[in-house]
């Protein structure tokens, strides 16, 4: 679905953001893109969508080079940016103007999604709150039936019920033909939705592994004391939350936030496990 080969990118010459980054993403997955502020999450997504151009290396998205911005590719990408704009028109006229560009646009599905999100279809886009607008563009984007769904911080600005609706919708949106990439800070909103974790750090991919692979190799546990087998631990109410190699084939629940902090702190310990 997506092939990234030796991607080089930076907004200025002295501060490269990606150095020779390579990665493959396939359909049928929800990828969670994690990274510190400024690690380049949004930038990577923009590279994939062709909104910025790589300074070196190749990108292949469904057989296209995104930099060419060919309509055939654009109609297969649903890109939900963190900050978005909707014109001050009625939902109806927005659809009339934009939906015909997507050959597989599914109006019925859109109606279902809007209902699920509690957005009346007669609404004017300008009268809606930020959260409602966000839900609208997510619904519109999914109804385009695009095969590549890219979302930058989609749960920002959603209230608690909306987050649950969002998770339900994303769970139903994943099909075998689709590839969904979600960047997020709020790991807790989405951790059960993500099946593969991509972590960016220091100009490259620090980790790319499925939840299954991670929990096969690592155990996430509450422990009373820290010993040498533990890679990383954070104090909690009753001892420590710890990450350690999974010697005893335990089936623990992946704690994404803990993993995130662990990899930032102890990169070298994890490297040999995932390769």
């Amino acid at each position: 679905m997506i092939e990234i080969n030796n991607l080089n990118f930076g907004y200025s010459k002295h501060k490269p953001l990606f150095k020779n980054m390579s990665m493959r993403l396939s359909n049928g997955h929800i990828y969670g893109l994690l990274g510190k502020n400024g690690a380049g999450k949004s930038t990577l997504l923009k590279n994939l969508a062709g909104l910025v151009y790589p300074q070196g290396g190749q990108l292949n998205v469904m057989g296209f080079n995104p930099s060419k911005r060919q309509p055939a590719l654009l109609s297969q990408i649903c890109f939900i940016p963190e900050e978005f704009y909707l014109p001050p028109v009625k939902i109806d006229s927005y659809l009339k103007a934009n939906a015909p560009f997507y050959p597989n646009f599914d109006h019925e599905y859109l109606a279902t999604l809007l209902k699920e999100f509690d957005i009346p279809a007669s609404n004017k886009l300008i009268d809606m709150s930020y959260g409602q607008k966000k839900k609208f563009i997510i619904a519109f984007g999914l109804a385009t039936q695009a095969r590549l769904v890219i979302m930058d911080e989609p749960t920002n600005g959603l209230d608690i019920p909306s987050k649950a609706q969002f998770r339900k919708i994303m769970a139903s949106a994943l099909t075998d033909e689709r590839c969904i990439i979600i960047s997020t800070h709020q790991v807790r909103d989405l951790d059960n939705l993500i099946d593969t974790v991509i972590m960016l750090d220091e100009n490259d991919v620090a980790l790319k592994a499925s939840v299954e692979e991670i929990t096969t190799k690592l155990a996430f546990k509450r422990v009373k004391e820290i010993d040498e087998s533990i890679f990383y631990a954070e104090p909690s109410l009753s001892g420590y939350n710890a990450v350690m190699p999974n010697y005893h084939h335990e089936e623990s629940k992946l704690d994404m936030e803990l993993l995130f902090n662990a990899i930032l702190a102890e990169k070298t310990k994890f490297k040999p496990l995932f390769n």
């Binding site: 969508a49 062709g50 909104l51 911005r69 309509p71 055939a72 654009l74 109609s75 990408i77 890109f79 940016p81 900050e83 978005f84 704009y85 934009n98 560009f101 997507y102």
Partner: peptide, 11 residues
């Protein structure tokens, strides 16, 4: 935000 919408329009 507007520029993204314009550029992502499939044309």
């Amino acid at each position: 935000p507007k520029a993204i919408m314009e550029l992502m329009t499939p044309a």
